[in-house]
């Protein structure tokens, strides 16, 4: 495979992976109003757990880590998502019962920093600052994949997973549950006065979002084969925020657009550009500045993002009702047919 296609499929992978990550943060922040500044920590938990679960026993690998079960893909990925969700439950009980808005955000940033320091310094957990490496490429043995063919293969697998997760997320967002999330985002006091338990729904939203974060993180370690603390500096959370703000908070299509513009075109595409002679690393810094500037421009001139949150029109609901009625009629007719038999 030529270097060009290697770059293209790497970009495709990051597009889909950040689409998943953006959907997870969107359900928490865009739909439920939880300012989760610790989001990247859930991505990291997913990555570490997915990696450590798929690695063999640590003895003799030159690394230190927990688990080491040699769990195959996608079970390790699923475990990564579930553990991130379990941690989200813990975090939600600590912070969501009493805190809101900026206070909540500050405590979450702090929690993210604490977790970062623990994982960075406590080597037996996930190999400390060196992180996990030599993580086996998923399904490489089954499909006889080489290093070159693995890149497009896994980009496509990630695309399929993203599609599946988009389907699930759309179902949630269009459901009464999604509507209640948005009610809590708009005014959790009013939602409470209408009989909705704000904490319960925020907890549900945290669990779903953390699962998406965990899966997104798991895919990163499976794609690159390694993951260490430099990959999830607490500031990385703001890249995911940039994705959803630029794309359009509250809209899944916006998440895809945001992932394309911010993560793919601004963060990863320039990484493949040749260095500016005499200024190593300058492109990376310019990148960060461009993302920051874009964020400011969007918040100033188009806070609703490129693809704004959709208004759920009654005509659409009536059409859903008609479709639902049609399907129910079909089911009823089939039932009658069967009983007639």
């Amino acid at each position: 495979m030529s270097a060009f296609w290697y770059y293209v499929f790497t970009l495709v992978f990051f597009l889909f992976d950040y689409f998943i990550l953006a959907m997870g943060l969107n359900i928490q922040y865009g739909e439920t109003g939880i300012l989760n500044f610790a989001y990247i920590a859930f991505v990291a938990i997913g990555a570490y757990v997915t990696g450590a679960a798929s690695l063999p026993n640590a003895a003799g690998t030159g690394q230190q880590y927990i688990m080491g079960w040699g769990l195959p893909f996608p079970f390790n990925l699923l475990l990564g998502g579930l553990v991130a969700s379990a941690v989200a439950v813990l975090v939600a009980f600590i912070v969501l019962r009493r805190l809101r808005t900026d206070y909540l955000a500050m405590v979450l940033v702090s929690l993210s920093l604490v977790l970062y320091d623990v994982i960075n310094n406590y080597v037996p957990l996930f190999n400390g600052a060196d992180g996990l490496y030599n993580v086996p490429q998923p399904m490489a043995g089954i499909f006889h994949l080489t290093t070159n063919s693995f890149i497009p293969f896994f980009a496509v697998v990630t695309g399929l997973i993203a599609l599946l997760m988009w389907f699930f997320m759309s179902r949630i967002m269009k459901s009464p549950l999604g509507r209640t999330f948005r009610a809590i985002r708009d005014d959790d006091g009013v939602a409470g006065a209408l009989g909705k338990n704000p904490f319960g729904y925020k907890l549900t939203s945290m669990i779903i979002g953390a699962f998406y974060a965990g899966v997104g993180g798991g895919l990163i370690i499976q794609f690159g084969g390694s993951f260490n603390p430099t990959a999830w500096l607490p500031g990385e959370t703001f890249v995911v925020f940039a994705v959803i703000i630029v794309g359009g908070v509250g809209n899944n299509v916006g998440m895809l657009v945001g992932a394309l513009v911010v993560e793919t075109l601004l963060i990863h595409l320039p990484a493949f550009l040749p260095e500016i002679p005499g200024h190593p690393g300058l492109i990376e810094y310019i990148d960060t500045m461009v993302v920051g500037a874009l964020l400011m421009v969007m918040l100033w001139f188009r806070p609703q993002g490129v693809v704004p949150e959709r208004v759920r029109k009654s005509a659409g609901m009536l059409a859903d009702r008609a479709r639902g009625r049609g399907r129910e009629l079909t089911t009823a007719t089939e039932g009658q047919g069967k009983s007639g038999e």
Binding site: R179, R182, D186, V190, A191, M317
Partner: peptide, 14 residues
Amino acid sequence: RELGGLTVLENLLV
């Protein structure tokens, strides 16, 4: 204290 981001119909559906 309306749920401002929701439509009028959605306010009732909550």
